[in-house]
Simulated scan of single mutants.
Amino acid sequence: MAHYTEFGYYRDEYEGSIEKEADFKKCRRIAESYIDQYTLNRITVPEAVPGLKDCACEMTEAVFDVCYRDDGQVKKSETTDGYSVTYVTEVSDGIDRTELLGQKMYRICRRYLLNTGLLSRSLKC
Results as ranks from 00 to 15, higher is better:
residue 66 V to W: 01
residue 85 V to M: 09
residue 100 L to P: 04
residue 2 A to E: 13
residue 18 I to C: 05
residue 124 K to S: 14
residue 40 L to W: 03
residue 108 I to F: 04
residue 102 G to M: 01
residue 59 M to R: 03
residue 10 Y to V: 07
residue 89 T to C: 13
residue 79 T to V: 12
residue 13 E to N: 12
residue 119 L to H: 00
residue 85 V to L: 10
residue 21 E to L: 06
residue 115 N to D: 05
residue 54 D to G: 04
residue 3 H to M: 09
residue 98 T to A: 10
residue 68 Y to V: 00
residue 99 E to M: 11
residue 17 S to M: 13
residue 108 I to Y: 02
residue 124 K to F: 12
residue 54 D to V: 05
residue 13 E to G: 05
residue 104 K to H: 07
residue 43 I to P: 05
residue 92 S to E: 15
residue 17 S to H: 12
residue 84 S to A: 12
residue 81 D to I: 11
residue 10 Y to S: 08
residue 74 V to A: 10
residue 20 K to W: 10
residue 107 R to H: 13
residue 10 Y to Q: 08
residue 46 P to R: 07
residue 93 D to C: 07
residue 86 T to M: 13
residue 68 Y to H: 06
residue 100 L to H: 02
residue 120 S to V: 03
residue 51 G to Y: 00
residue 112 Y to G: 04
residue 104 K to A: 05
residue 81 D to A: 13
residue 16 G to A: 06
residue 22 A to I: 13
residue 25 K to H: 14
residue 71 D to Y: 07
residue 38 Y to I: 00
residue 5 T to V: 13
residue 70 D to V: 04
residue 105 M to K: 06
residue 85 V to N: 08
residue 35 I to E: 04
residue 16 G to C: 03
residue 37 Q to C: 07
residue 58 E to G: 00
residue 77 S to A: 14
residue 82 G to T: 13
residue 98 T to N: 09
residue 73 Q to Y: 10
residue 50 P to H: 01
residue 34 Y to N: 04
residue 117 G to I: 00
residue 39 T to Y: 01
residue 53 K to D: 01
residue 50 P to R: 03
residue 66 V to G: 00
residue 108 I to V: 08
residue 19 E to R: 14
residue 121 R to I: 08
residue 114 L to F: 02
residue 125 C to W: 14
residue 1 M to R: 06
residue 13 E to D: 13
residue 4 Y to V: 04
residue 54 D to T: 09
residue 22 A to S: 15
residue 70 D to F: 11
residue 81 D to Q: 11
residue 29 R to I: 10
residue 28 R to Q: 15
residue 61 E to N: 02
residue 43 I to T: 04
residue 12 D to N: 15
residue 93 D to W: 09
residue 124 K to W: 11
residue 72 G to H: 02
residue 75 K to G: 07
residue 24 F to Q: 07
residue 11 R to V: 12
residue 39 T to V: 01
residue 114 L to K: 02
residue 51 G to K: 02
residue 12 D to C: 09
residue 78 E to Y: 12
residue 21 E to K: 12
residue 2 A to Q: 12
residue 95 I to W: 05
residue 37 Q to E: 10
residue 9 Y to V: 08
residue 89 T to I: 11
residue 48 A to H: 11
residue 43 I to C: 06
residue 16 G to T: 02
residue 37 Q to D: 09
residue 57 C to Y: 01
residue 73 Q to N: 15
residue 39 T to F: 02
residue 7 F to Y: 15
residue 72 G to P: 00
residue 24 F to S: 07
